[in-house]
Simulated assay, not measured.
Amino acid sequence: MYAKILVPVDLSATEKAEKILRKAESLLNPDGEIVLLNVVEDLPNYLAIDLPVDLIENAIKDARDRLAALKQNAPRVGLVEIRSGAPAREILAAAVDLHADLIIIASHTPDLTNYFIGATADRVVRHAKCSVLVDR
């Protein structure tokens, strides 16, 4: 059982998010806490020039709304956090900052560039300072 579980979610795959939230609840101490995290990726400068100025701000607002909806169905979620940057780097930083005991991350269907697990999940597994559970 774990005291603090970090659950980074990809909001384009909410069914996976709900599944790993249920897994987190089953592994949580009775007095533990789940932290929901979403990382909004920064845009490269060469792309940002051609896109609306408030694109990132709108993505953060959308993420906040969608995470709030996920939290409503998961009573053990204590904190919802949104960060911007490179997903793997921000997930690892959040785990350290929040003193997470476990990270539960979903993996997408692999392609040839990341055959065994997703690129973000792979980086998190290799560099995390706490336990990591990858849900395929």
Rank of each mutant, 00 (worst) to 15 (best):
D135H: 14
K4Y: 11
A100T: 07
I104F: 08
Y115F: 14
D111K: 15
V96F: 05
E33Y: 05
P8S: 10
V40M: 02
I104M: 10
N73Q: 10
I5L: 02
G118Y: 06
A17D: 08
G118P: 04
L92D: 05
H108Y: 10
R83M: 12
N45R: 02
L79T: 14
I104K: 00
Y46N: 06
Y2K: 11
L21V: 12
N38S: 12
L70F: 01
R136A: 11
D42C: 06
I104Y: 04
I105Q: 04
L43S: 01
I20N: 04
D31W: 10
K71E: 13
K4D: 08
V96L: 06
I20H: 03
A24L: 13
K129W: 00
H108G: 14
D50V: 08
I117Q: 07
N45T: 12
A106P: 05
D111C: 11
I5Y: 06
K23G: 01
G32M: 14
S12C: 06
R76P: 10
A119L: 14
S131D: 15
P8H: 04
D54P: 03
L133W: 09
V40P: 01
V132G: 04
H108S: 15
K16L: 12
A24K: 01
I5S: 02
A106Y: 01
D31C: 07
D31N: 15
F116W: 13
A69W: 03
A13H: 14
L43Q: 00
I82C: 00
A63P: 09
P87N: 00
A95Q: 05
N29Y: 08
I34R: 00
L51Q: 00
P75M: 07
L27T: 07
L70M: 05
A94T: 10
I103N: 01
A93D: 15
P8D: 08
Q72W: 03
F116R: 13
G78N: 10
Y115M: 15
L79Q: 14
E90A: 14
P8Q: 13
L28V: 09
K16M: 12
N114H: 15
A59E: 13
I20Q: 15
D135W: 15
A93H: 11
S12A: 15
K4L: 09
V124I: 13
I82M: 04
Y2T: 07
A94P: 01
K23L: 13
V77F: 00
A128W: 11
T14S: 07
L21G: 08
E90Y: 10
E41D: 09
I82H: 03
L70A: 05
R89L: 12
E33K: 07
D111V: 15
K19T: 11
N114P: 00
L51N: 02
I103K: 06
D62G: 06
I49A: 10
D65G: 02
L67F: 06
V96I: 11
P75W: 08
M1V: 14
S84V: 01
I5A: 04
A106H: 03
E90K: 09
A69D: 14
E57R: 01
A95D: 08
P110N: 09
K16D: 11
V40Q: 05
A95S: 15
I20T: 13
L133H: 10
K61G: 02
K23Y: 12
